[in-house]
Design a protein around this nucleic acid. Structure first.
Lengths: 109, 109
DNA sequence: AACTCAATACAATAAAATTTGATGCAAAAG
DNA sequence: CTTTTGCATCAAATTTTATTGTATTGAGTT
């Protein structure tokens, strides 16, 4: 009755996991300004194409980015909806939280 | 000039990492309602004391929780400021983001 | 001094994540 | 239609890192 968060869905946990790696955060940061194709990211970050592709996959599975094909290029961009979802998840921790103070730990009343 | 996020500080990455583990999320969830001592958490979650202590340490290092000693009990509670920090970090991705559309990938103009 | 709550040290384990190199495949160019 | 380009993916290897259990320690209580 009083729970609101309680189900840390796979998508939420996966999202936070994707965000916990510096290289991936760097990718997201580059995408803040504009959509970029893999070759752009590759050039900007000095990583091998395969490695970048791996991390893009992690980000895509976490739905933090989306991919759009145009000709033979694939453009990546932020999926802002997912950022909002994670924000809201975090926000709910604040909703009813620091109301009750400590509770007696001993078994008596 | 146009960057606002750019520094995924260790604290941010550490925070997301801490949030990417179901058991730890469960702990946070229990703490939403009230401050709890380790023995309460231990009982509520059916894990060994040592294991719980390990995960509490991860959460504490990520500053998602704080600990307060009272007698021989240690009460844990959410550190809401840190949740706000992470929320704000995520929110900044939305700030200037989806303005620019795709950019031509070829080297010519 | 004995007991309780919790952190820590240590080792063992487990596992999981990352990286590389090779290959495949679709789209475009010639 | 053959070649080239951009990217994904597969298989292994690597590397790391994370988790967990078993003591042990230490502070606070009784």
């Amino acid at each position: 009755m009083q729970k609101t968060t309680s189900i840390p869905s796979t998508l939420i946990v996966t999202g936070f996991h994707a965000l916990s790696e510096p290289l991936r955060v760097q990718v997201l940061d580059l995408l803040r300004e504009q959509e970029l194709c893999v070759c752009d990211l590759c050039g900007a970050m000095e990583v091998t194409q395969s490695k970048l592709s791996f991390h893009l996959k992690v980000l895509k599975e976490a739905q933090l980015v989306k991919a759009r094909q145009e000709g033979r290029w694939i453009y990546y961009s932020l999926n802002l909806a997912q950022f909002v979802l994670l924000e809201q998840y975090l926000a709910e921790f604040r909703r009813f939280s620091p109301i009750l103070p400590a509770r007696a730990c001993r078994d008596d009343g």
